[in-house]
Design a protein around this nucleic acid. Structure first.
Lengths: 223, 223
DNA sequence: GCGGATCTTGACGCTGTCTTAACGGGCGCG
DNA sequence: CGCGCCCGTTAAGACAGCGTCAAGATCCGC
C-alpha cells in the first residue's frame, strides 16, 4: 500500500483529494498547516507527500526545507502560482514535482504514479570496487569488512562522485554541492580532500584507480 | 504508527472520528459501506478496524465474517443496539470489542489502546547483542535477564536506532522523530541522552560498541 | 500538595575536523 | 630551456562538535 500525506488548507480540496486517492488505493493522511504536516511526517512512515505551498502558518518552501532535514520522501508541490521562479524555488528546496492549480485529477494521479516509480528505495545501493565497498544507504565505507572512517566532508565528496559513476564532475559542481555555491573558487579544498580520500581508499595513492583527476576540469569515480 | 480503518455511513461521525484519531497519532483510512471496507482491508496493512454494524449495503456481521476469512486484524464494533444477543453475535463473528452509541471519545481511545496492546505484532522482533537484549514488541531492555530501566525519551531514541541496524541516523532525523520537527537544532539533547543510554547499556562507556557516534552527522546502532 | 523521576539548560575540557598557506613536481608552451 | 599552471602533499592553528557534569525546571503519581 502507498501511504500519502496531503497538506492543504482548503477543506474542500482536501476532501476531494482524500476521496479520489482512497478510491485509487492510497492510504491518506491529511494536514491543514505546515506545523502539523511536519509532525505527521515524523510520526507516519510515508511514501509520498502532496504539499500545497499556500499554507496559513509557515511558508510552504520553508516546510519543504525543514522536511528535507530529516526525510527524503518524494514531494509533489501544489501551487496557484505559475511563475517559473516559484517552480525553481520549490524544486531547489527539495520538491520532486510541481503542479499548478487548477489541475486535473487524472494528471495528479499520473504524476503520483511516476513519482512512486521513480523513488525506488536506494536501500540496496551498494557500490563495490576491488579495493573498497560503499554502502550509500547505511552511509558506510568498508575494506575487507573493516570500517573506513570518513569525515563528513570526505563523505559528501565521495557520495557526489559515486552517485554519478564514470561521470565527470567539475570542480565547480563539487564545490557548490559540498560547500555551497559561494565556494566555487576554493579549488584548494578539493586538492586537500581528494588527497585525503585517496590515502584512505586507494591502495596505491600514486596511481589511483577509482578516484581520477581530469586536469583543469574536475574529478571522476570509476567503479 | 498505527493504521486504523474506520467504517461508518454517517459522515459526521466519520469526520469526528478522523479528527480525533489523527490528533492522537493514528493514520486514518475511512470507508462508508461494507464493500469498500473489505476492499480497503485487503489493500492496506491495518493495525485496527473500527466497524459500525449498521451499513447501507451489507450487514455488519457479514462483513466481519468475510473479513475474518483473510485477516486477523483487531476489530472494534460500533453499534446502536444494546441487546446482549447483538453483542454475542458480533463477538462470535470475530469482533474483539463492542461499544454502543453514543459513546465517549475517551472510552473509544482507551479501548483502542487496549486492543493495540493485546494484538501481538509478529514483526516486533528481539534484537540481541552481547551486552543487552532489546524486545521491541514488549518494550523492554534486559541484561543477563535483569531489566534495564529506560525513561520514555531514552527508549524512543534507542528504538529509532535499533529499528535501522547499522544505518546512520542523522541528528535531524532523531530530533524530528523523538522531539518533533521544531527541535531540529537542539543537538544538545542528543548529547545528553546518548551519554545516558551508553551509561545504561554499554559495559565500557568510553568505548561504545553498539551506540556509535558519527561526528558531525548522527548516530548508528551496531548489533 | 508533595516528592521523586524526568527533562531541559548551560558550562567546561578535549578530540578531531576544517581551513589556510607553503612547497615541490609534472606538463605544456613559448 | 625556463616559465607558468595545476595538481598533490604536508603541517599547523582555528574552530566546531562531542562527552560529561550538575543544577534548575517540569512533570507525574500518590
Amino acid at each position: 500500500m502507498t501511504a500519502v500525506l496531503v497538506v492543504d488548507d482548503d477543506p474542500h480540496l482536501l476532501r476531494a483529494l482524500r476521496i479520489t486517492l482512497q478510491a485509487h488505493g492510497y492510504a491518506v493522511t491529511t494536514a491543514v498547516d505546515g506545523t502539523s504536516a511536519l509532525l505527521a511526517a515524523t510520526q507516519n512512515p510515508l511514501s509520498l507527500i502532496i504539499l500545497d505551498l499556500g499554507l496559513p502558518d509557515i511558508d510552504g518552501t520553508s516546510v519543504l526545507k525543514e522536511l528535507r532535514g530529516f526525510s527524503s520522501v518524494p514531494v509533489l508541490v501544489l501551487s496557484a502560482r505559475h511563475g517559473s521562479e516559484d517552480k525553481v524555488e520549490a524544486l531547489d528546496a527539495g520538491a520532486d514535482d510541481y503542479i499548478t492549480k487548477p489541475f486535473g485529477l487524472d494528471e495528479l494521479l499520473a504524476r503520483l504514479r511516476a513519482l512512486r516509480r521513480r523513488s525506488v528505495e536506494p536501500d540496496e545501493s551498494l557500490v563495490v570496487t576491488e579495493a573498497f565497498t560503499i554502502d550509500l544507504g547505511k552511509h558506510r565505507v568498508t575494506r575487507d569488512g573493516e570500517d573506513i572512517r570518513l569525515t563528513p566532508t570526505e563523505w559528501k565528496i565521495l557520495e557526489e562522485l559515486v552517485r554519478n559513476p564514470e561521470k565527470l564532475i567539475t570542480q565547480q559542481q563539487l564545490l557548490a554541492r559540498v560547500w555551497g555555491p559561494a565556494y566555487a573558487k576554493e579549488t584548494n579544498y578539493l586538492r586537500v580532500y581528494m588527497a585525503q580520500l585517496r590515502r584512505k581508499l586507494e591502495p596505491d595513492t600514486a596511481n589511483p584507480r577509482h578516484l581520477l583527476t581530469e586536469a583543469g576540469i574536475g574529478y571522476r569515480f570509476m567503479p
